[in-house]
Design a protein around this nucleic acid. Structure first.
Length: 576
DNA sequence: GCCGTTTTCGGCCCGACTGTTTTCAGTCG
């Protein structure tokens, strides 16, 4: 049987919820599938284990029925309700709903009246004029659907946060400079620092929306205007990415910023809480039963009137943050300023571009107290992994640079390669000579869960493996992560005192937010490392910090937020 | 289908736009 992970099961429940909606089921029933899907994605335990232990009911939004559905999926890959609906409707038609302008009713009509069962079918039917005369599909709707298909195809390829954010920040900053603009900010998933984003949302406070819209259309970075209305303009930027700029009145600024930042699930929870207190919250403000505004100008006010402190955008994902905020127990989140050094960098001795000296100089500019030099170990032959004599050469260079006195302390480290049995490149007597060792998986990506997991567990049992590098091995949009039992990995890290890396490379961001929350709960140390292969890569730190914050990681959890003596004392080899 | 600071039954988030609706359903964010 294939293994079902949380994301897969969440996806299946989402698809089924859409299918039910098309079939015309009660909308609260369909909503419950979507709610459960979200909760399962955020569930930081392997759901097959939760199921095996009979604890599915602990997942918010999962009751008796959904528990049975999930168990059925795990046992046999499907469930009776799905099979029943799939007899009358092909499962593929849920894809139609991803096209802007097509909802459940139109999707159903497209399938039943024209046999359209996928976005490709839809594009074809459109070309051939086969949608003429279909009720609900007038000329304008057809135009909208045509544009929707293009947008769907463009956004399916999501953009890395690191590619989208600089441009988005420039866009917001240039609007902020306009005299008619009182405030400008990013909103949506890019403000929440999600690792990938579909499009860019920018919010502006102004009394003169027309002037703002005009200015947006004329910005140099705008290559074309998709649509421009009174308070909203959509443009394509040089990157080909769509940005939506919205204008709101200054008295609604905070409410609108809160609203458009989301996430959707977070907003729904907030509105439920507001309602229970006889308040109504919308993008215009928070209103009491008499309809008078009680908050809205700032985000602080909106949260305060609901009894919460201002919520950092990165954690607004409806994964328990609201309950913590209500109890005044929001976790302290790490900031870039807390970071005292980088523990993972490479030099030209293996596959790095910048010399040890140059890396050290850059680390000094960043105000770091220490820098870990961690080139690849011997077994990674393709990048020229170091043998003992090369290591001794590097150690001499480190000693020489450290003797200069000023600047960050260079640490003698290594990135070990974990072999098929969980072993590493050097014997213990060599490993003992490093200040610390990182061990990483570099091959065997297709291995079954049991095998890949065992490799990591065995590596962590080595007393000289202090840190596991880029634990899941994913490359966003390019390579799937190793299939790992992350609970077992985290448990072993906690048991052995091994730290887990949060690799800050924008294509990795590995561990992800869900894994980080799991590690935090288990008390595992995290090191936020850039894995710099060039001195310019130390700036990747911000992506790692953003992801750490999404994972509720605080400065105390972060190994490289500690002063050098504390860091050294917390290394596995020095704890025993 | 879920769930309890009004509730174990009757609710379940809000506001706006769009088009083909002649009074509002469908869709979106």
């Amino acid at each position: 049987m294939p293994e079902y992970d949380n994301a897969t099961i969440g996806g299946m429940l989402d698809d089924f919820g859409d299918l039910l909606e098309i079939a015309g089921a009660d909308r609260y029933r369909t909503l419950s599938y979507h709610k459960a899907a979200h909760a399962i994605r955020a569930w930081d335990e392997d759901i097959t284990r939760t199921a095996a232990e009979g604890r599915l009911g602990e997942i918010p939004g999962v009751g008796a029925k959904l528990g049975a559905v999930i168990s059925s999926i795990i046992a046999r890959g499907s469930f009776p309700e799905f099979e029943e609906v799939a007899q009358s409707l092909p499962a593929s038609i849920t894809e139609l709903m991803r096209v802007s302008g097509v909802g459940p009713k139109k999707a159903k009509a497209l399938y039943e009246e024209r046999g359209v069962a996928s976005v490709n079918d839809l594009a074809e039917a459109l070309e051939e004029g086969r949608l003429e005369g279909l009720p609900g599909f007038g000329a304008k709707t057809i135009d909208n659907v045509r544009a929707g298909i293009e947008r769907y195809r463009a956004i399916s390829a999501r953009m890395l946060l690191a590619d989208a954010l600089p441009l988005a920040e420039r866009l917001a900053a240039s609007l902020d400079e306009l005299p008619v603009v009182e405030a400008a900010s990013l909103a949506g998933s890019i403000r929440r620092m999600k690792e990938t984003v579909g499009d860019v949302d920018v919010l502006v406070a102004s009394r003169d929306p027309a002037a703002v819209m005009e200015a947006v259309r004329l910005l140099p970075m705008v290559t074309s205007v998709v649509a421009s209305e009174e308070t909203k303009t959509s443009v394509l930027t040089a990157s080909g990415r769509q940005a939506d700029v919205r204008v709101v009145a200054p008295e609604s600024w905070g409410a609108a910023l809160q609203y458009f930042t989301g996430s959707a699930g977070h907003n729904v929870r907030l509105r439920e809480i507001a309602k229970a207190r006889s308040l109504k919250i919308s993008e215009y403000g928070v209103f009491d039963a008499t309809g008078s505004r009680v908050a809205g100008a700032t985000e602080e006010d909106v949260y305060a009137v609901l009894g919460m402190p201002l919520m950092p955008p990165e954690i607004r994902e409806n994964t328990g943050e609201i309950d913590l905020a209500l109890r005044g127990e929001l976790p302290e989140l790490v900031t870039a300023g807390d970071i005292r050094g980088d523990l993972h960098s490479h030099t030209p001795a293996t596959d790095g571009k910048s010399s040890l000296e140059k890396n050290r100089q850059r680390a000094a500019e960043l105000g770091y107290e220490y820098l870990g030099c961690s080139d690849h170990a011997y077994d990674l032959r393709m990048v020229g992994g170091l043998d003992l004599s090369q290591l001794e050469e590097q150690w001499d260079e480190i000693d020489t640079l450290n003797a200069l006195g000023d600047g960050p302390v260079l640490l003698k480290a290594i990135e070990l390669n974990i072999d098929d049995e969980g072993g590493v490149d050097y014997p213990h007597d060599v490993l003992a000579r490093f200040d610390y060792c990182i061990a990483s998986l570099h091959h065997g990506f297709g291995q079954p869960r049991e095998k890949a997991t065992q490799r990591l567990l065995r590596a962590m049992e080595n007393p000289y493996v202090d840190i596991i590098g880029h634990p899941t091995g994913r490359l966003l949009g390019r390579r799937e992560p190793f299939d790992l039992d992350m609970e077992a990995v985290v448990a072993k890290a906690a048991e052995t005192g091994t730290a887990l890396e949060l690799n800050a490379h924008p294509e990795r961001l590995d561990l992800n937010d869900v894994h980080l929350r799991l590690a935090r709960k288990a008390g595992v140390s995290i090191c936020i490392s850039t894995d710099a292969h060039d001195a310019t890569h130390f700036s990747f730190l911000k992506w790692g910090v953003a992801t750490a914050r999404r994972g509720w990681i605080g400065p105390a959890d972060v190994l490289n937020a500690q002063p050098l003596d504390v860091l050294v004392a917390r290394l596995k080899r020095n704890r025993r």
